[in-house]
Amino acid sequence: MAGQDSDHALVVENLSVAYPLKGRDRAGARRRLLAVDDVSFAIPRGTTLGIVGESGSGKTTAAMAAARLVPHSGGTIHLDGEDFGALDAAALRRARQRVQIIFQDPYSSLNPRLRAAEIVREPMLYAGRTDRAEQERIIDELFEAVGLRPEQKSLFPHQFSGGQRQRIGIARALSTRPSLIICDEPVSALDVAVQAQILNLLKSLQRQFDLTYLFISHDLGVVQHMCDEIAVMYMGKFMEQASRDSFFAAPGHPYSRALLDAVPSIEAVDRPRPPLLDGAVPDLSEPQTGCRFASRCPHALPRCENEVPVLADATGAEGHHRLACHRADDIGPAASG
């Protein structure tokens, strides 16, 4: 993975996020919770990387750390080839406009005291773009691009529906022309009918403005629709990382398969239901000695509990496909339905 590759909007290497806990462990070191553990990814400009995982898997934390909204405890972050992870506070504030976020909850993500136009204007003000006429031009352009009417510019957030609010949030994220947009479950809080509209809007905006997305979701259907590349995260670690087609054609990791099996589908109604996962999730405040998924994995061997698997190229997969599983070759790539 090339650290200074300028074809990539974002290159993250060995990113870790640790939260300090109270007390010390037996060795006398401060206890800490490793929410994100040694995660690397790169997003080519104009493409979408999806991070999927269950609640608490660290996918949002990883994205927020990449945007430096959560302090990272290790690793490097390069944005457009520049060392974004090492910027000091003042330089970081100036650079922040280059990473914007679309949030999950359209109700708490808009300041209730600002009119729609002011919400879209806010990032431009902080970025020092003070030319009023230029601001108005960008606001008009963005309102049209996200499908809002010009006369809605003077309305307050409570006068919009959830889907419209999300459109304002998208316009806000676009107003500084960022290099990277983090979509943090942008449709999870919306009606199914509105979800499709917003997803299609995000796709058409990507084509229109050549946007790069880091897309976080727990919904594999949404990820399949949106993303060029997919990373499966579990308990702070990437379990599998592959191009979309390779992933959905042959998910290699037992956890990925369990996720896909959990997606309800009409064709699967008559088939025997795969066993649900049981077992407990590991305690991340303790140092991990093996695979984090071993406690719930149906294929786990003693080795899985004693040796941490590393991401390695999957054998026999087409294109880019990496797995972190000791038994990847034994259980073979699954043909998924």
């Binding site: 504030r93 976020i101 708490s108 970025a127």
Partner: peptide, 26 residues
């Protein structure tokens, strides 16, 4: 903890702006 404060922070608002212009009015 609300997301619009994170949004303002992500847009480059300083702590002073966050306190006086974003959080305080609300």
């Amino acid at each position: 903890e609300l997301e619009y404060v994170t949004a303002s922070r992500a847009a480059g608002a300083s702590n002073m702006v966050l306190m006086t212009r974003v959080i305080l009015p609300n």
